[in-house]
């Protein structure tokens, strides 16, 4: 099990489009991937889960993974978030 913390860097936070980007990155891996906010922990491959997390800009979230390629999986998802989804940063 690998985990890494990151602050949501964009102004609007994880709304529909960013959520879709996260899910699309996560489904590339066979291992289980999660995203966790102070409020909830959800399956990173579930668009509904990631959206209901409703993490706003500035929230500290944890990305974790377990199974094959867990390290790369966490790195990839964290990188997607760090990029700010190509949106305006805080």
């Amino acid at each position: 099990m690998i985990e890494k913390k990151i602050t949501v860097p964009n102004k609007l936070g994880i709304h529909a489009r960013p959520a879709a980007l996260i899910v699309r990155a996560a489904v590339e891996f066979d291992c289980d991937v999660w995203v966790e906010s102070p409020a909830d922990k959800v399956n990173a491959k579930s668009i509904m889960g990631v959206m209901t997390l409703a993490a706003s800009g500035g929230t500290l979230i944890t990305v974790s993974a377990q199974g094959d390629q867990e390290e790369t999986a966490v790195e990839t998802v964290v990188e997607v978030i760090r990029s700010g989804f190509g949106e305006e940063m805080i």
């Binding site: 529909a16 489009r17 879709a20 899910v23 699309r24 959800v42 399956n43 491959k45 579930s46 668009i47 509904m48 889960g49």
Partner: peptide, 16 residues
């Protein structure tokens, strides 16, 4: 395309 990709993700959502 973005809307449709979003629909596809929803459709295949493992939780649902």
């Amino acid at each position: 395309r973005q809307i449709l990709e979003f629909l596809l993700l929803l459709l295949q959502d493992p939780t649902i």
